[in-house]
């Protein structure tokens, strides 16, 4: 049985025109270079990859905050353009990295969380108060916080406020871009527990972007790995962490520092030749850093191989190409 995915992106491209030097002409930077994604209702898609590979740009497109250069996006089968901005905001909400800068310091917590309801003209005055208190309760915020200001709360409480503000609209999909990376580990644990509980209780669907792969392993049902604007591997979460297939995925997981004494720091053998997104290498864009790179890799762009395990974009898995 196939169900319509709650969120589906097909062939997304996003190109920025950037200048490398003050007097140089603008050149195209393909931040997102043909990305397709789909998530089932209640699923958690973990989006991982090197700094600058285009994760946040994908997130902004999913939120309708960044117009794709081309490609289509649909929620429950309905194209994004047909949905309209306000309706979209009701259904898809973001949680960003920094709980400090994303809250207005001059507004009380109550009014910060109520604001989306005002904007979308949802409920009456008394109704709204109840809705807000309910969501605060769900997010583990004490009632007294209603009249407090952001500066009076701890980092973890502020991130809870940001989550409550996102959830008060009762969205179906929440896009979390590094939701815990600015937080201490003890606060991170509270927020991850909260995200897990809310998913269970409200049937939420998450897109989770994080550099912390242990966090992704804990909550993602499916993982997509990006490299230079493309998805190079996609698999069920547990399969992925047990047996990553793409050489970049393997390097990524090999670099994770688990808290086990005596193992030393791994060397993922990636070399220090960082790719320039304006001048991506020919063939497979990962080839200058790949331990398995052969002649084909330097000239032929690998195609997407889809199989029972998911997707991988590497010649090693393509019977038609000898590496």
């Amino acid at each position: 049985m196939t169900t319509t995915p709650i969120l589906e992106a097909r062939d997304l491209f996003c190109t920025f025109q950037v200048r490398q030097g003050m007097f140089q002409p603008k050149r195209p930077l393909h931040a997102v270079n043909g990305v397709s994604l789909s998530i089932e209702k209640g699923g958690v898609l973990g989006l991982v990859g090197e700094s600058g590979c285009g994760k946040s740009t994908v997130a902004r497109m999913l939120l309708g905050l960044q117009e794709p250069t081309s490609g289509t996006l649909a929620i429950d089968g309905q194209p994004l353009q047909e949905i309209g901005r306000k309706e979209l905001a009701k259904r898809v909400q973001p949680i960003f990295q920094d709980p400090y800068s994303s809250l207005n310091p001059r507004k009380t917590i109550g009014s910060i969380i109520t604001l989306p309801l005002y904007i979308h003209k949802i409920g009456h005055e008394s109704d709204r108060r109840r809705k807000v208190e309910d969501i605060m309760d769900l997010c583990g915020l004490p009632k007294r916080a209603y009249d407090m200001y952001p500066s009076q709360l701890s980092g973890g409480q502020r991130q809870r406020v940001a989550i409550a503000r996102a959830l008060v609209m009762r969205p179906e999909i929440v896009i979390c871009d590094e939701p815990t990376s600015a937080l201490d580990v003890s606060v991170q644990a509270q927020i991850l527990n909260l995200l897990l509980d809310l998913r269970r209780e409200l049937g939420l669907t998450y897109v989770l972007i994080s550099h912390n792969l242990a966090v992704v392993e804990l909550i993602a049902s499916k993982v997509s790995v990006m490299y230079l604007g493309r998805i190079v591997e996609e698999a069920q979460g547990q399969d992925f962490f047990r047996d990553p297939r793409h050489p970049y995925s393997q390097a990524l997981l090999a670099s994770v520092l688990t808290p086990e004494a005596g193992l030393g720091v791994p060397d993922a053998q990636l070399g220090s030749t960082f790719p320039n997104p304006i001048d991506p290498p020919p063939g497979c864009t990962f080839h200058p850093r790949c331990a398995h790179a052969g002649d084909a890799c330097r000239t032929i762009r690998p195609s997407q191989i889809r199989d029972s395990r998911g997707l991988v974009e590497c010649h090693l898995f393509d019977d038609a190409v000898a590496v």
């Binding site: 003890s186 991170q188 644990a189 991850l192 527990n193 242990a214 804990l218 808290p259 004494a261």
Partner: peptide, 30 residues
């Protein structure tokens, strides 16, 4: 790491997800 003893150190070690140890979807210590 083998015998964290101060209650705070223990708390810290229990609240991070550890690949291979923390199960998928498991609640973390706080």
């Amino acid at each position: 790491f083998s015998r964290p003893t101060h209650p705070y150190t223990q708390g810290l070690m229990n609240c991070i997800p550890v690949p291979g140890k923390t199960a998928y979807g498991e609640r973390l210590g706080t």
